[in-house]
Design a protein around this nucleic acid. Structure first.
Length: 787
RNA sequence: GGGCGCGUAGCUCAGUUGGUUAGAGCAUCUGUCUUACAAACAGAGGGUCAGAGGUUCGAGUCCUCUCGCGCCCACCA
């Protein structure tokens, strides 16, 4: 027998198996392989996340436990990998990294930089995922900016256009003045901010002074109207009268509007274009009012701002308050805290402005989306509430056009003469209308011959909402394609339910009239050891590569297994260390087993099994049942606990001690039964740990169990089933024997006697059938006489 | 303001449909190099299960309220 090293060293073994898996294509998808397909709609991470940390590791590892489990259960796993590398996240990243501004660089240079960063980013990911042993099929990858994805994204747009789910219109929209683009409701984030509620005095034509309160006094030049509640007695007599604004001297009519809250401020509200969603709603009830374009796309005041032209919003606010104070138009200023919407990518206060944009209709189908949410299997169930809340509260159709550079272009031209929308042929996709002309020679509507391109690009989610289709179409043959949609599993984090998950359902509903995936597994966040969010800014993380280098990938994965689905998990170096110790322990048991040469041909019949053997086999069966159930429910933390408990406390601490006297004894039958049982049980332990710790289990499998199951890798071996063996011997009283063993151990420990030393005699307090267990207790407990 | 989740040993958490002295790991203390493992093993101490009230023969577990923490959502100008 060749020499087996005494210590398990992940640094040495892990690279070996990484190469082996890659070379042998262990995780390669084979459409002709047996087994039902289990397909994963892997989250394509933003490649702009150049600082990968434990949080990333956690969320991807968690999904991966399930894939490995399913693979061992005989499913044909389809586990591709994607990278989300277009749109604002990448642009923002490049802008920050190179300190550039979109307006000061050419579009093509900018895109070039983005592509470079994208490439670097995906390599960073691939390296870490490989280190971690994430079992994706690296021959099935996509990036959301590549041709494959552009084609599908543009196809989706045209299909929705044909289905009348997409429209273009000019209306007030959400706008980010920093990113200089329209954004969608899902891109908003509420932020609690300090502000001032300014009470402004205005003169009514009747001579009375009327006071209204606002947090946005700078929008005074864009005032559209002013309202009170129709029942408000204080103002009844001046409804319908002219009100003159201070400074601008602009006159508006005081209207009655039921939406006005009599209790808030002075009970008078002024509406301007646009102070917020409420102004837009008010406008829809008061068509007589005229919006004014005050804030320009760059965040500065237009000429409509008069004296404030060219100022940024906050400057103008300061100045206008000063000016009003000077003319005595301010009654008082109350400091308040209120939540304002900011753009989640850059934190800028969101403006509302009128603009022409493309939208996907979502408001009209809320009910259908809620129904889809009901059809979906949520893990954990409570996450559905999150989705329901979001869908029910939607207020805007999905704005998909972005006035940006780096993204999938709209496949759209317009007729110069009549403005007709010209779309390409599906077969010509993807197109870049900035680079090419439409194939048709003249406008079908007006026969015009000149066209101009749509310059906007898609919202990044317009493409990533199609990942199940993108993944499906990576496979060529159509028979397999059919089996790949919908995906079996969508693993993702909770904070993108309202975006990625929701938008994917929208698309699938419109395109295919079905769910895009059967199960959704929602993970929480990885936090730092104090429970704070991990971020580059706080620097509160150790690079995962460092941790892997020190403790091994298995150990890091072991930590990640500890999370409850949907809940955040604090990073805990002690758990990583525990993982490391588990690999060592597994290795040691393997060595022990190998000392007693055996082939895990495993247990044959019950006749030669002794009570301890039956006990451990029954415990093993319970553990297999428990681990299987929990992996199936995605509660891998519980699966891990069950396996840990069985392995450490039952197998290592008891069973091995129970059989030592037999392994070193004379009775060949008894020895054989013990060896076989040990091999059987340990083999199944290895298999059960395989999804969690793929490296050490592979090492042990290749070294000791290869002959037992004719597969190339433990990861292609069969997930353990409960073992059938003769249950003729009733061992329900074996727990008394264990209690007796405990008593013997306690006795020796308290006397300071080594457990390895035989003692002369002991009178047991534990009630145990000595006729049955006397011999066993004496030998396993190392006591010469028992009473 | 609404919703969801959490609050159990010094720390991190398990506690299934309510049922005997509330569990684990780590940490602490004591002992042991036992023919796999001292990166281990054996043992010990440690908890008014956030607080109050209620239902019940019986509550960490169910109900109500209070306090604290986290998250999601919400146009109050």
């Amino acid at each position: 027998m060749k020499e087996i090293s005494k210590h398990y060293d992940p640094q040495e073994t892990e690279p070996k198996w990484r190469e082996f898996w890659e070379k042998e294509g262990i995780y390669k998808f084979n459409s002709k392989a047996q087994g039902e397909i289990f397909s994963v709609d892997t989250p394509p991470p933003y490649v702009s996340a150049d600082h990968l940390h434990a949080g990333h590791v956690m969320s991807y590892a968690q999904a991966e436990f399930i894939v490995r489990f399913k693979r061992m259960c005989g499913f044909n796993a389809y586990y591709p990998m994607g990278f989300d590398d277009n749109g604002l996240p990448t642009e923002r990243f490049v802008e920050k990294k190179y300190k550039i501004n979109k307006s000061k660089i050419s579009r093509s240079d900018f895109i070039k930089l983005c592509l470079e960063e994208t490439k670097k980013g995906s390599e960073t990911y691939r390296n870490l995922w490989t280190l971690l042993g994430i079992s994706v099929d690296w021959s099935k990858t996509y990036s959301t900016i590549n041709e494959h994805c552009r084609r599908i994204s543009q196809w989706s747009f045209i299909d929705l256009y044909n289905k009348k789910k997409v429209y273009r219109t000019k209306k007030p929209i959400l706008w980010c003045t920093t990113c200089r683009t329209a954004i969608a409701q899902a891109d908003l984030e509420a932020e609690e901010k300090e502000s001032n509620l300014v009470y402004i005095k205005a003169k009514a034509e009747t001579g009375e002074t009327i006071v209204f309160a606002t947090t946005r006094p700078e929008l005074l030049p864009a005032v559209m109207g002013i309202s009170v509640h129709p029942e408000d007695k204080r103002y009844k007599n001046i409804i319908g009268k002219n009100i003159t604004m201070p400074l601008t001297k602009k006159k508006v009519i005081l209207t009655a509007d039921e939406a006005t809250d009599m209790q808030y401020g002075s009970g008078v509200v002024y509406y301007c274009s646009y102070g917020g969603g409420e102004c837009i709603e008010w406008l829809s009830r008061h068509p007589e009012a005229k919006p004014i374009e005050l804030v320009l796309p760059n965040g500065r005041f237009s000429s409509s701002g008069g004296a404030y032209e060219g100022m940024k919003v906050l400057e103008a606010r300061k100045k206008i308050i000063e000016d009003m104070e000077r003319v005595g138009a301010i009654e008082k200023i109350e400091p308040i805290k209120h939540s304002v919407y900011v753009h989640e990518r850059c934190g800028t206060d969101v403006e509302y402005m009128e603009s022409e944009q493309w939208f996907i209709k979502i408001l009209e189908s809320k009910k259908e989306f809620l129904k889809r949410g009901q059809e979906l299997h949520w893990f954990p169930k409570t996450m559905k509430r999150n989705y329901d809340d979001w869908v029910s509260n939607l207020k805007w159709d999905w704005c998909i056009s972005r006035q940006r550079y780096y993204g999938v272009p709209f496949p759209v031209w317009y007729c110069e003469k009549c403005g007709e929308v010209i779309l390409p042929d599906m077969k010509d996709l993807p197109v870049d209308p900035l680079e090419e002309q439409p194939k048709i020679k003249s406008c079908p509507k007006c026969k015009g011959k000149k066209f101009f391109p749509e310059k906007d690009v898609f919202d990044t989610w317009q493409t990533s909402s199609l990942t199940p289709i993108i993944a499906q179409k990576l496979i060529g043959d159509s028979t397999t394609q059919k089996k790949l949609y919908p995906s079996s599993l969508r693993p993702q984090a909770f904070e993108i339910i309202r975006t990625w998950l929701f938008y994917t359902i929208v698309k699938s509903h419109y395109h295919h009239n079905q769910l895009p995936f059967v199960n959704a597994m929602i993970s929480g966040h990885g936090l730092d050891e104090q429970g704070r969010k991990i971020s580059k800014r706080l620097g509160n993380y150790i690079p995962p590569e460092k941790i892997i280098e020190e403790y091994g990938a298995d150990a890091v994965r072991y930590w990640a297994t500890g999370a409850t689905l949907g809940q955040s998990l604090k990073f805990n170096i002690l758990e990583v260390k525990k993982g490391r110790r588990t690999t060592t322990k597994l290795w040691n048991i393997a060595r022990f087993m190998a000392m007693h040469e055996t082939k895990p041909k495993l247990v044959q019949s019950g006749s030669q099994l002794e009570r301890a053997d039956i006990w451990i086999l029954e415990e093993m069966n319970k553990t297999i049942a428990e681990a299987t159930k929990n992996f199936e429910n995605y509660t891998y933390a519980k699966a891990k606990d069950a396996i840990d408990d069985f392995f450490w406390s039952k197998l290592a601490d008891y069973y091995i001690e129970f059989i030592k006297y037999r392994l070193f004894g004379e009775d060949k039958r008894s020895k054989e039964a013990a060896i076989k049982t040990l091999a059987m049980v340990f083999f199944n332990v290895i298999k059960m740990y395989a999804p969690i710790m793929p490296f050490v289990t592979e090492e042990i499998f290749q070294e000791f169990f290869k002959s037992a199951e004719k597969t190339k890798s433990v990861h292609l071996s069969k997930w353990p089933k409960e073992l059938n063996f003769s249950k003729k011997t009733n061992i329900s009283d074996f727990k008394d024997a264990i209690k007796a063993i405990d008593e013997i151990r306690k006795f020796k420990t308290e006397k300071g006697i080594s457990l390895g030393i035989d003692i002369e005699s002991l009178k047991l307090k534990t009630k145990v059938d000595l006729k049955k267990y006397g011999e066993f207790l004496k030998k396993a407990g190392r006591v010469k006489k028992l009473a």
